[in-house]
């Protein structure tokens, strides 16, 4: 930063600033265009969706009608989907973040038999194709009669290997060995040291993992798609995708087109809001994971 700061008055610098800001602005238009489209589409009637220009509002503002349809369709199932998504992802994220933190702490601060092997196993887990895991899991859980339950979606989501890597790297930096030893000298047990000394220090890392796990679960599609077949158990992702298939196959009527976009809008607003509010955490956390990895 200081390099360019020193020359910020030169004409070359000013030309570059215009040029590069222009390049980024173009990419911003690309990034923003689909999001803007969702907004305009959600405010249109089905007829207008087809007859007016996609990237601008129709004269007829139809958002309230669309919302009404969205929340009343199939006896208000959309609200149920939202509730399911919130329920599945908050419990999964909280559990995943907590267990990742425990595991990351063990990997970062202790030496023990089997440490290398266990960490290699966790690392290798990211290479396993979803189908290789989720399909056998489905077959096993269906034998136990656990498919079509919240357990089937939540329990597998509690295993979040990226959280373990991130917490290990974070704890390595944030908590010195001497601090833990000071706790030992003071007579505190290992669990007490973790809960009364370490935990508050690793809160920023914990929060990052919590957000990342939350987003991963909010966005999860394949696991609930396989595990659940009762529509009132669906999360938004599976529900909306199904609504879309109905819309496009024409069986549910063309009516559903704008409703799907309205549903998309309603479901991404909370995540985007959460991201904007908590950006301090994910930016720092992704950095820690990325630099260390």
């Amino acid at each position: 930063m200081s390099i360019v700061g020193k020359t910020s008055t030169s004409p070359k610098f000013r030309r570059n600033r215009w040029l590069l800001t222009g390049v980024l602005s173009l990419y911003f238009l690309y990034t923003f265009m689909p999001l803007f489209y969702v907004i305009t589409a959600a405010t249109k009637s089905n007829q207008d969706l087809f007859s007016t220009f996609g990237l601008w509002f129709a004269p007829d503002f139809n958002l309230w009608d669309n919302l009404h349809t969205l929340f009343t369709i199939q006896d208000g199932i959309f609200l149920k989907w939202m509730g399911n998504t919130a329920y599945y992802s908050s419990i999964s994220a909280a559990g995943a973040a907590l267990f990742s933190t425990f595991a990351g702490y063990a990997f970062a601060k202790y030496s023990f038999l089997g440490k290398k092997l266990m960490f290699a196993l966790v690392l290798g887990a990211v290479m396993i194709p979803q189908t290789a895991l989720v399909i056998p899991m489905f077959l096993m859980l269906s034998k136990l009669g656990l498919t079509n339950t919240a357990f089937a979606v939540i329990l597998p989501s509690l295993v979040f290997p990226p959280g373990v890597f991130l917490m290990r790297a974070y704890i390595d930096d944030a908590i010195s060995n001497e601090l833990i030893e000071a706790g030992r000298m003071d007579g505190a047990g290992e669990v007490h040291i973790f809960s009364s000394i370490a935990f508050r220090l690793l809160m920023p890392g914990f929060t990052t993992v919590l957000i990342l796990a939350f987003v991963a679960n909010w966005n999860n599609y394949f696991l609930p798609l396989v595990m659940l077949n009762k529509p009132d158990m669906f999360p938004i992702t599976v529900g909306l995708a199904q609504l879309y298939s109905t819309a496009i196959s024409g069986t549910g009527g063309v009516l559903l087109f704008t409703v799907v976009m309205t549903g998309a809008l309603v479901s991404i607003v909370p995540v985007i809001a959460a991201f904007l509010i908590m950006q301090r955490f994910w930016q720092g956390g992704l950095g820690a994971g990325g630099v260390k990895a």
Partner: peptide
């Protein structure tokens, strides 16, 4: 014990 980094609980 007194540690090199002091190891005070922050």
């Amino acid at each position: 014990m007194v540690f090199q980094s002091y190891a005070l609980y922050p």
